[in-house]
Simulated scan of single mutants.
Amino acid sequence: MRATEYFVHACDPKTLIVRQIMEDAVVTVSPSSSAMVVAELLSEHNFGSVPVTETDGTLRGLVTEFDLLKAVEQGRDLREVSVSEIMTRDVITTTEEMPLMNLIHVLQERHLIRLPVVKDRKLIGMVARRDIVFAYVKARANYWP
């Protein structure tokens, strides 16, 4: 759940930080999961990627639609491919304390759609461009007591 969903007072969106706009209920997969499981998750939930974590929550990578398409293009059967074979390992991440304006800069500079949020190498959330837009709208809204 995003904290911005509970805003009751308008504020300057520039004062927001990642913790306030990130989604903390994140669907993850393990490195040993099949690529088909990821494809099903992405299709079912309308996600563009899913984080890969160890049982203790340590972020190991990210599987994106692009990773799946690449495997399909290579003629691989997603039911027989493990996540660890196709995941992106060098994942750009953010912290929960990053200011909104810095986050926007990273996403634009790197042409990214979403970033995992980590604390001590453990996944604690995901933040996407859509979350920023939602937070901006909520921060600018006029609330009635």
Rank of each mutant, 00 (worst) to 15 (best):
M22W: 08
E23Y: 00
E23S: 05
D24V: 01
D24W: 05
A25R: 00
A25T: 01
T28W: 07
T28Y: 09
V29N: 09
V29T: 13
V29W: 08
S30G: 10
P31G: 09
P31D: 13
P31I: 07
P31R: 13
S32V: 14
S32A: 13
S33A: 15
A35I: 10
M36V: 00
V37K: 15
V37T: 12
A39G: 04
A39K: 06
A39Q: 09
L41I: 15
L41Q: 15
L42W: 06
L42Q: 04
E44H: 08
H45A: 03
H45N: 01
N46Q: 06
F47Q: 02
G48Q: 04
G48W: 04
S49V: 08
V50L: 09
V50K: 11
E54C: 12
T55K: 14
G57N: 00
G57D: 02
T58V: 15
L59V: 07
L59W: 08
R60M: 15
R60I: 15
G61Q: 08
G61E: 06
L62W: 12
L62N: 11
V63S: 13
V63Q: 13
E65N: 12
F66Q: 07
F66I: 14
D67C: 06
D67F: 09
L68P: 08
L69M: 05
L69A: 07
K70M: 02
V72P: 03
E73R: 01
E73W: 01
Q74P: 03
Q74V: 01
R76F: 11
D77W: 01
D77T: 02
D77K: 04
L78R: 11
L78F: 13
E80N: 00
V81E: 05
V83S: 12
V83T: 10
S84W: 07
E85F: 09
I86S: 13
T88P: 10
R89D: 12
R89E: 15
D90S: 09
V91D: 08
V91R: 07
I92H: 02
I92F: 01
T93C: 08
T94V: 06
T94P: 03
T94F: 06
E97F: 02
E97L: 02
M98P: 06
P99Y: 12
P99T: 05
P99W: 10
L100G: 12
M101V: 14
N102P: 06
E109M: 05
R110P: 06
H111L: 15
L112V: 05
L112H: 05
I113H: 12
L115M: 15
V117F: 00
V117N: 00
V117L: 00
K119H: 15
R121Y: 11
R121A: 11
L123V: 08
I124V: 14
G125D: 11
G125Q: 11
V127K: 03
A128Y: 04
A128E: 06
R129G: 07
R129F: 04
R129C: 04
I132M: 03
I132D: 00
V133T: 07
F134T: 02
